[in-house]
Write a protein that binds this DNA or RNA. Structure first.
Lengths: 243, 243
DNA sequence: TTGTGAAATAATGTATACATGAAAAAGCCT
DNA sequence: AGGCTTTTTCATGTATACATTATTTCACAA
């Protein structure tokens, strides 16, 4: 089996392009359907066209860009797309945790993730939410690894690639703090229940929990979308969504 | 919404590399973990390194290759991987048909796919199975388009990318013809039921049918795998699977 | 005025030379 | 002899010039 991605990630020009392009796309500085021209972009990013093209190709596979004849355009997402993406992630994550629950001796592999959940417990009890996003991401990464299958792990990772579909996409909220804090408490209860279900070999329950957990993200994005105008600067992910 | 991919696909060097490399990988002529070197490959394929690298990058995203330090290696799949991939496709396809069933006035969009099912009816009644694979692929393509959402359509397409996960992966069988013919009959019944469920707005039923339909593919691959040695030359997809 | 066509323009596609880094080989020391 | 360091070699990463193809623009005719 493939190792859990401990690659140090080479810091080459292609990575630089990827980081910068992702950031620009997500920030919404390119309105949907903007055509990206290679030469000006390369000049702007201070790299040659070769690594830039490699980055563009990757972003196309990620679904953030799409070809339009010759060249790429920024992909525009609808609100419905965001809901579909989140539900999709929930489904695939659900399959992953079901497989984990069906594994023999899964208990032996739960040490690390239990520590993460414990750390999340303390964060949720805090008065602020600092560090929640990172820990939550770690939890979900560890969760998908529990299935013990590279294919399903990769697919969950992929389903989380869109900025609004990731588990920690809306894990901070300046406004409406109380409501958000409650959703964190519920989410954390899901985390505990998820682990318990996996440990007990309750595959169907684990799968249902993963889906419900994703549903929580759906609710969060729906709330966020309603007050979109005011929140745009807090949640750049929303800039990608056009209707 | 994006158009249903009527792009004529430019016939450039990158496409040539993709075709050739896919064919070589699937045929199993490179044992798992074979390192691919760019320069010899480029010479062999009679292209420069630039389009070759583009093709390699795409195949990495497809999951047929993986990076190993510097350079690519052919990804090896286990039997479990194949089962997971098929079930995954069934799940995602299931979500797609559920969305289709939940659409208003979906009946207006069923003309083309009904024609495909009718064509499949005649093929299934034949004494041979010529043309089944192509028609079946067409049916599934049209099916995923019914959801009316580019994101879910793209994801179903992606879930079908692995040679053993595609809907028509094992749609021919020289040996054990009778058993295989029966599975075709059952599969075709699924097709009819799927359309009926979508037309009537029975989302849950449509989803369940899509999953069961994928399960049929699982059974087929299990049977095929048991007699793998004799069938390798008929089913090159199996060469990818190592244990 | 609008449609069609061809020519001009500008973009992406490709090849190749060079830079950089990693892996392999050789030599040295212990 | 074995293991470590150094050097060499070779593969990938990058830049850029050139080829090809797509797009735009302008002219001309219906």
């Amino acid at each position: 089996m493939k190792k859990p991605d401990n690659e140090p990630k080479p810091d080459n020009q292609t990575e630089k392009c990827l980081r910068e392009l992702r950031s620009r796309i997500i920030s919404g500085q390119w309105p949907g359907a903007t055509k990206l021209r290679e030469v000006p972009l390369a000049t702007d990013l201070d790299v040659s066209r070769t690594p830039l093209r490699a980055a563009l190709l990757k972003l196309e596979q990620e679904g953030l860009l799409e070809r339009s004849g010759a060249g790429y355009t920024v992909r525009a997402f609808s609100f419905k797309d965001a809901l579909v993406a989140i539900e999709l992630r929930g489904m695939i994550e659900g399959m992953a945790v079901r497989l984990a629950a069906e594994r023999l001796n899964i208990g032996d592999h739960l040490t690390a993730i239990k520590a993460t959940v414990a750390a999340l417990d303390t964060v949720v009890q805090q008065e602020h939410t600092d560090g929640y996003g990172d820990l939550n991401k770690l939890f979900h990464d560890q969760l998908t690894a529990l299935a013990g299958n590279d294919l399903i792990r990769d697919e969950v990772q992929r389903a989380s690639r869109l900025p609004f579909a990731a588990p920690s996409a809306f894990s901070s909220s300046k406004d409406d703090y109380e409501r958000f804090k409650e959703s964190l408490v519920v989410g954390q209860q899901h985390h505990h229940a998820l682990l318990q279900a996996i440990e007990r070999g309750e595959g169907a329950r684990a799968e249902a929990l993963a889906r419900e957990h994703a549903h929580l993200a759906k609710i969060n994005i729906e709330v966020a979308f309603k007050v979109r105008a005011e929140k745009l600067h807090h949640m750049p992910q929303l800039a990608l969504i056009t209707d």
